[in-house]
């Protein structure tokens, strides 16, 4: 079996990814602390949580802009396109692999290549997370950071409440995504091989 190194994570993507990961973990920890605050206290002091949450949120917002611009001006954007093509069939094949094939040591149905570094399940989840989830999370977060910009009521319900509910819901959905994302990253050839790829930029492809 020969191993071929494919360069799939350019430096700018790795920098974006590490900053995104650090900020996201900080946002989850402080966000949970704020959400489950009691008058007696919480596991991170309220004002410290707010400060960290706000700073991390601003950094992740600019980092998101950096990601979107990077995808526009570089070839990395191609990995987020054409996700509709044979969607159902491809998702079934990938899902079947994770459910059964992986235990029978079947080959990956969609091996990583320079033109296609994501499998169909990764591609659709990354598209939804990065181009729907993140914008909703950022916009609702900015609304909470500048509450005077939020409509006082929407159809008789507090605009602040709706914004907060959207923010909390998206925060939860993306936290769940993070859990699954980290686990699926152990599904490479070896449990740590995909993590190494995100550090050195290379994916080890085996013939």
């Amino acid at each position: 079996m020969t191993t071929k190194k494919i360069y799939v994570y350019p430096v700018w993507v790795r920098l974006w990814h590490v900053l995104n990961a650090i900020c996201f973990i900080l946002l989850i920890l402080t966000g949970m602390s704020l959400h489950f605050t009691t008058a007696e206290g919480n596991f991170i002091r309220f004002d410290i949580s707010v400060a960290i949450h706000n700073v991390a949120a601003i950094i992740i917002t600019f980092n998101y802009g950096y990601f979107v611009m990077g995808n526009i001006v570089s070839s990395n954007g191609k990995h987020y396109k054409n996700w509709r093509k044979n969607l159902a069939t491809n998702l079934w094949r990938q899902g079947r692999f994770y459910a059964f094939g992986i235990f029978k040591k079947e080959p990956h149905p969609f091996p990583v290549s320079e033109d296609n570094k994501f499998n169909p399940l990764q591609k659709i989840s990354y598209v939804i997370v990065m181009y729907l989830g993140m914008p909703l999370l950022i916009i609702s977060g900015l609304g909470l950071l500048f509450p005077e910009t939020i409509a006082y009521t929407v159809f008789g319900v507090s605009g602040l409440l709706l914004t907060d509910m959207l923010h909390i819901t998206m925060g939860f959905v993306l936290s769940l995504f993070l859990l699954i994302h980290i686990y699926t990253c152990t599904l490479g050839e070896k449990p740590l091989s995909l993590f190494k790829g995100m550090i050195n930029g290379y994916h080890d492809a085996h013939d």
Partner: peptide
């Protein structure tokens, strides 16, 4: 608090 006088952090929703 869950109506038009919402206060962040003071709106526990046990269901959600």
């Amino acid at each position: 608090i869950l109506n038009d006088t919402f206060v962040i952090g003071a709106n526990p929703s046990p269901l959600l």
